[in-house]
Nucleic acid binder design. Structure first.
Lengths: 235, 235
DNA sequence: TTCACACGTCAATGCTGTTGTCATAAGCTC
DNA sequence: GAGCTTATGACAACAGCATTGACGTGTGAA
């Protein structure tokens, strides 16, 4: 009548696997992140993780109730890493840019986890810290509270939305990912100027543009708009 | 040596399944969309779709090379429905607002499908039409091609990113959805002004703001920024 | 009326997450 | 150290997944 999963701080017996690994929550999460980074999103399966750890796949269920619980632990770890070392400079535009860039970059680095995590509100330590930081930047810059909150919402959800979108693309199987990009050459590149004048005129530009994320552009445009609101609030 | 998948317009023999259904690309896509709406994204498997159609799962592979090809067809169908009846007015700002609103609204209407669809590039009929429309609005408004393409990218991915984010929230189990919202009261509403001055000052505003989508605000800010670029390009 | 073959069906393959059972060694008590 | 308890890793099995090759039937063309 023992629970299958024992909380990490109550573990006494650390028994190495047949291949010699000593398991722990931490070791599993780190190996999982490493696996995703190296072999892509679709490599994160319980079986492959077991193999990477040097343990039977089912041993993982001694540490996490389900693969979803493992996913959440992974996400938490990721958020922590994204914040690491951030310092506000006092320049609102530079600070917002840096925060946005960090959120986006960190989810891009671990797309599989990002897909599941981007739309959740955790209320945990790291999340709280970013919310406080963003609101602080906006209010210090001179926005009234109502507008600061609205713009906070637009800013953070834009970062998360692009992160989710770009991460989902990265999380696709390599073949589908390549196929989606190829469409910009194969389909859009061959349309006639008679039927699709605007696409025909910009096809080469499109094919290049769509290879990268639209977030940097969207972020700068958002910062432009915030600057205009600040001018209006001040003047 | 016959191809497994025969293009829809070259099909002659329509042979009912054992259960009497007559299959077609259209019938499969519609059943799939219906299935996803009713039972959630995870219900969209080849086997369940086969069962819903009244056909052997493998019969689907006579119409789509893979489940991914089916996914793309589904996506395009949704894009098509979103733009049904759209007419450009010639006012760039009103037109862009309407297109963005339609994309977001349609994905919100089918959140379970949107989660799967928002990040794919299909190159199919309906998608091509929207791309052409957006590029047309931006170029007609006076943006040079390079900037039109960059802003097109930011605009469309902003709409899709918010759609994906908001759809993912709607697609959550009701309990998780409620829990995520409650965090804004339960956690953020109780933080001390000493440790989190900016959150403490705006907590009630935050709790209200976070109940709705941030997209309308973000969209207006993006339109503001585009207007500024247009002024710059003209002046 | 004939006949080729399109297409629905069946069976099999190799993945996936997950669980019940077992045996073994870790760490406690003495 | 010796012996006991039980945590924990390993094994095997299950159900469900996408996909594919072989097969036979009935359709539509000639």
């Amino acid at each position: 009548m023992t629970e299958r999963v024992v909380p990490e701080d109550r573990r006494r017996r650390r028994r190495p696997t047949r291949q010699g690994t000593v398991l722990s929550e931490r070791a599993i999460v780190e190996t999982a992140l490493h696996l995703v980074d190296q072999q892509g999103a679709q490599a994160l399966t319980v079986r492959k993780l077991g193999a990477a750890l040097g343990a039977d796949p089912s041993a993982i269920y001694r540490y996490f109730h389900s693969s979803d619980a493992l996913m959440l632990a992974l996400t938490d770890e990721m958020i922590g890493r994204a914040q690491q070392g951030y310092r506000a400079t006092g320049d609102w535009r530079a600070d917002l840019r840096e925060i946005g860039r960090r959120i986006h970059a960190c989810y891009q680095a671990h797309p599989q986890a990002a897909v599941l995590a981007a739309h959740r509100t955790t209320g945990r330590e790291h999340e709280v810290r970013v919310v406080e930081a963003i609101l602080g930047v906006l209010r210090a810059a001179g926005l009234p509270d109502g507008e600061a909150v609205r713009i906070y919402h637009a800013f953070v959800d834009q970062a998360l939305g692009f992160a989710a979108l770009d991460a989902a693309a990265l999380a696709l199987p390599a073949a589908a990912q390549a196929a989606d990009l190829a469409v910009w050459h194969a389909n859009y590149g061959t349309l006639s100027a008679d039927t699709h004048p605007n696409i025909a005129a910009t096809a080469p530009l499109l094919a290049v543009e769509m290879r990268r994320s639209g977030y940097p552009t969207a972020l700068e445009l958002l910062l432009d708009a915030i600057a205009a609101r600040l001018d209006a609030a001040a003047g």
